[in-house]
Structure formats: structure tokens, C-alpha cells
Design a protein around this nucleic acid. Structure first.
Lengths: 340, 340
DNA sequence: CGTCGTGATGGAACCGTTCCCATCCTAGCC
DNA sequence: GGCTAGGATGGGAACGGTTCCATCACGACG
């Protein structure tokens, strides 16, 4: 047994030990085993085992252009929703024999650009993007290079890419219907600034349409969630406003739900009496007070779908297929926070 | 402007356009710019810009053996603690100009082995491991190959690697001191089975030592958290036991805290009256009931430290340095769940 | 019995870099 | 003025694979 190979064995060494050519060894590991005689296969297997040989993916990717790498750009890795989707992406990758190169951008457009360049330089075979900014140039470069792109729940005007995500309009309808059915008449919609992210825009737009269609009274607060006092004030004002209709908060995503819950607790509001409904299901939603009603997204499915799109695209004649859009439905999980 | 380069430009094309040699272009991008005349630099820059050239990392990695890639093996990507550490790792990577190849194993030793092989085949320059099983063979192979290894909070007997993580003994002392100070006399320690993970073992051991030293009464429940009814029964029995001393639950990690909170809620226990203290700080700990007391780990710091170890090791003469161990201190965040 | 198809195997070019070494030029020195 | 040191530049061999194409043996066929 070789105690300290120190240097990884190469295909040539294996070939020598097996008394074969490197072509044959390459075939053996490249999935063309059946082309080799039984005997030769055995010799190669034995030699490779003895030298504990592993093909070098770098070298592999060089010639054929197949890096076996998928890239994923995540806007905020600490957001459980992103992680859940990533988990789906990862599983699908495994099934396709791909590895995942994950880049977290912390919502910083500059980092986003940098990471995109980086992924390009590794010649990733596909890219799943969940990003904040709009690095059109960089993305277009990727597309030109022939890399299939999938946007997670955000669309970017210029670039041709498929979009996978939630059916935001129906999700909002679901939320509004529920709130109305439970008797809430005045709503405050909480979201981070929607300029940068198209799903936020879609949700906000539908909120406006939805309250108009349902004769509800609606108000909107779109500020960075870091501005805690502004949020508290907005919610405080909303709850203190004259009027008799029950009030409810509608949170555009998991972060907003977290911030809203904190704020309500700080203000001493009782959940249920003050309604609360959040988009994105989180571990702890069932545990806080009477439980927080949420709209759950099928995160795993979204992640898997993204990879499927990528693969389909890669196999197909490429750009012939028109950009598609895959929408998933949210499901309502009613809890005490919307029960008066 | 080249509308559809279709094929990424190579160093040779840039060289031709710039009327230079590929060596010079390589130097330009390889950080040896100062060796080139001002004029040549400009020509290369111009050509590269026009062709939107990006060096191919695969080819780069091939020749020099530097993949600029760091690998990270994560046991459970959906665990917020893991993600927080990963965030630290990632930031440190960026500062060192490295990219991160993340592999999630979902606590499955088989996947772990597979991913390890994969990371090896990409010739990662270092490896941060937070794994469940003990794939000694694979790890040893990596080490032989010269890849520096860092274990996150778990040590593996055989393999030579540095260990970065929490000072589990002092963390448990902190927890026990707090519980005792708050008047809890009988404790139930909740953990997933400790066989596989050394920090679980370390914590469990210290728990036993600690209660003995403090004249506390202690009990232990180490079952997979998925077994909900078993957990409920164990907690129910514990609370119903004859005796007058106030009871408290001590949770070995975030998952255990989540499970315990659910169980307590199902049993209708009041937090505080029944004490609850969890290791790992989570988003929602402040929000549940009177708040859950936790022991926060400096996750970012742990992640960064792991990368620092790796880098130090890579620069140093390698294996000459003895395996080190870096321990961080937990900090107590007292909340209502340990106030009677 | 010569020809030919077929399956197993090997030789060698190529993928896009890096890096060692050679070459060229110019200024400085005796 | 010849020689040399040293800086700028380029040529070409790796790096570890993949893949096209040639070769070889062998049985079948006319």
C-alpha cells in the first residue's frame, strides 16, 4: 500500500501500471467501460485502486469544456428561504452528477458582479441566480458564452433566461382572501424596498390591486428592515389610527415576518387581535404566541425545477427554446395569528 | 463590440490582438503587470476588454496546481448554525481570493464520502469539514495529497487536522452555573445521539461531570429528534417525576432547542416555570413566550478562524506544524425561559 | 484465399494556461 | 568600442486529461 503518494497519481501512471494506454484508462473512467475487454478493465481497476487514482476534474474540464459545475448566486445565504431552495438545487445537482459552486453576495451588487465573473471563469455549465442587483452586462456575457441561466423568482428585463418561482399574484390573492375571511379590514403591507427585486414588485402590485378589488383598506411600508424604529413607528401609527375595522399585517417575506413579530412584541400587541400573515414558512412560526399564519413556498421543488430547466436547456439546441417561466403555488398554513 | 463571441476568448487571441505574446498576457493577468512596459500593458488591457477576455480557471488550476478553490463539507445545510459558520468561511475566503465549493451531506456518510472524493478531484486547496461520519480513508487520502484540513468542532482520531470550535466544557459550565443560580435543581439534557459527533460527546461528558460537581440532579435523553413521541414522553415523565426542585431542560444544540420548545408547548408547560436553555442562538429565541435563554457561539469568528488555519498551514512547511486546536467561548444570553 | 467489416487498443494532437529559458536591446563600464 | 548586466519580451514545453484517427487481429464472406 502506498503510504505517502504525496503527489496525486496521473492517468499516465495508471496506464503504465496497468500496462495499457492512457486512452484506455481515460475510457475506463469516462464511462466507456464497455468498450474495453474484461481483462483490460480489470487491470486498470487494479492499478487505479493501488495508486488511489482520481481523475483531475480541472484537466477534464479543460478539453471538453465540461466542468461538471453548476453555479448558484445567492443574495443572502442567511435567509432560510434561500437555503431551502439551495437544498433543492443541490439534490437535483447530485442526481445529474454535478457539483454546486455557491456564491453568497450579501445583497451587494459589487460582490454580485465579482462572483459572476468568477463563476464564468470556472466555466460553470449553468447558473441559478437569486440576486439583488441587475448586472446585465455580466449576465449577458455568460449568456453569450453559452451558459444557460435560470432566475429564481426574479426577472431581469434584458437578459434571456428562464424564471422559476412563486406565482406571486395568486399567493397574494390567497393571503388577502384569508385575511378578509377572517374579518380583517385594514391591512398594512410590509416589504423591503421593491425596486431591486421583481418578486417584491409583483407582490406589492398585486397587493394594491387586491385590496382595491376587495374593498379593503390598505397601507404600505417599504423600508429596509434594519430601520427598526421606523418600522415600529409605522406599525404603531397603523394600529393607533382611528377606525374600527380589525387590523392585520401582511409580510412580504420571512425577514419581514421576523421584523414584524419583533415590532408587535415591542409594541405589546396581541397576535390574532392584530392579524399577522407572512409569506415564507419558518421553523418557528408555529411557536410564537398562538402561531403565525404563513404562506409556504414549495422551496425544494423550486430549487429542483431550476436545475431541470438548466439541464433541459443545455441539452436542447440552446437558444432556440424561448425563455420559459415556471410558477409554483403557495399553500396557506392558517394559525392563531389570524384568528380573532 | 463583439455581439456574440459564442466562444470565450483565449489568451492566444488576446495576445494576437494586442500584438504581444501569450506569455506577456499571462503575466498581465497573473499579477506581474509591473514587469511589462506601460505601452504593452495598455495594448493588452485594450485587447482583453474588446474581447471581454477572462482567464480560464480550469486551465490555470491545471498548470499551477492552484485551483483557488476551498472546499467545505457541511453536515446539514439547513441548520442555521452551519450556515452562520459558512458565512464566516465565505467572507474569509473572499479576502484571500478563494472561492468556496460547498457540499451538503445531509448527515449521510455515503454522501460524505462521495463529496470528499469530488472535492479531491477538484484539487481544492483546503478543506473545512463539519461532518457526521468518519470517512478516515478518504480524509487520509486528502491529507496525503497535501490538502490542509480543518475540522469544525469535531475531532477525528486518526487524521491529522486542526480543530476549530467551541470550548464545550466551559460552555456547559456556563450553562450549568446559570441554571443553578436561577434555582433549577433537576435537569434534563437533550441531545441527538452523541456517537458520531465529538462535540456532542464533549458536551455530554461535561454535563455529567458538571452536575456531579454541583450537586444537581441530571437526566439525559439522547435520541434522534425525529422521534417526536419519544421526546414528548421523556420530557413529560421528567416533569411529572416526584420531587420539588424546579426543573429545567438543557438543549445541546439549535435543533434540540427547537424540538424541546415544540414539546413543551405540546405539553402545555410554561417557560420559566419549566426552565429552558439552549446552546446556539437563533433568530426566534427572543420571540417565543418570555424568550429562550441561549448560549451563543461566535459563528462568524469560527468560520474565519477555520480559513485562517488553512491558509497558515498552506504557507507553512505543511505537516511540520503540529495539529492545533482553536477554541472559542460561548456567551450567555439570559432570557425569560430561565426566570421563575 | 484475398478482402473487408468490426471490435479492441494505442498514438498524438489539442484544450488554455504557466513558467523556464532564450533572445533582443540598451545603457553603463573599462 | 567591445563587453556585460539587466530589463523587456517571446518561444515552447509541460500540466492531466479527451478524442480523433490509425492500427491490428480475427472471423466471415464471396
Amino acid at each position: 500500500m502506498p503510504r505517502s503518494p504525496r503527489q496525486r497519481a496521473t492517468i499516465l501512471e495508471v496506464a503504465r501500471h496497468a500496462n495499457a494506454s492512457k486512452t484506455s484508462v481515460s475510457r475506463y473512467f469516462g464511462g466507456e467501460r464497455e468498450r474495453l475487454s474484461r481483462e483490460l478493465q480489470d487491470r486498470i481497476a487494479e492499478a487505479a485502486r493501488r495508486l488511489s487514482y482520481r481523475p483531475n476534474q480541472m484537466a477534464r474540464g479543460l478539453k471538453g469544456g465540461r466542468s461538471r459545475l453548476l453555479g448558484m448566486l445567492v443574495a443572502d445565504i442567511r435567509n432560510p428561504f434561500s437555503v431551502a431552495v439551495m437544498h433543492g438545487v443541490e439534490q437535483a445537482c447530485r442526481e445529474h452528477g454535478l457539483s454546486l459552486l455557491v456564491c453568497n453576495t450579501d445583497n451587494d451588487p459589487a460582490q454580485e458582479r465579482a462572483h459572476l465573473a468568477l463563476l464564468a471563469s470556472y466555466r460553470v455549465e449553468g447558473l441559478v441566480i437569486n440576486a439583488a442587483g441587475s448586472p446585465d452586462r455580466e449576465l449577458q456575457a455568460l449568456v453569450d458564452q453559452g451558459t444557460p441561466l435560470v432566475m429564481l423568482d426574479r426577472e431581469l428585463g434584458e437578459v434571456e433566461a428562464e424564471v422559476v418561482g412563486l406565482d406571486n399574484a395568486r399567493a397574494l390573492d390567497l393571503a388577502l382572501d384569508h385575511l378578509q375571511a377572517r374579518g380583517y379590514g385594514e391591512l398594512l403591507y410590509l416589504s423591503e424596498p421593491p425596486e431591486l427585486a421583481s418578486p417584491r414588485q409583483a407582490r406589492l402590485t398585486r397587493f394594491h390591486q387586491g385590496i382595491a378589488a376587495r374593498d379593503l383598506v390598505g397601507e404600505v411600508h417599504c423600508r429596509p428592515l434594519g430601520e427598526r424604529e421606523a418600522l415600529n413607528r409605522a406599525i404603531g401609527d397603523f394600529l393607533a389610527r382611528p377606525g374600527t375595522a380589525p387590523r392585520a399585517l401582511l409580510c412580504a417575506n420571512g425577514n419581514a415576518t421576523l421584523a414584524a413579530t419583533r415590532a408587535l412584541q415591542a409594541l405589546g400587541a396581541r397576535l390574532g387581535e392584530t392579524g399577522l400573515l407572512g409569506i415564507d414558512e419558518l421553523d418557528w412560526c408555529a411557536l410564537v404566541g398562538p402561531g403565525i399564519t404563513t404562506l409556504a413556498q414549495p422551496t425544494e421543488a423550486i430549487g429542483r425545477a431550476a436545475v431541470e430547466c438548466l439541464m433541459r436547456r443545455r441539452e436542447a439546441g440552446d437558444s432556440t427554446t424561448p425563455a420559459r417561466r415556471v410558477q409554483f403555488q403557495a399553500s396557506l398554513i392558517p394559525r392563531g395569528s389570524t384568528r380573532r
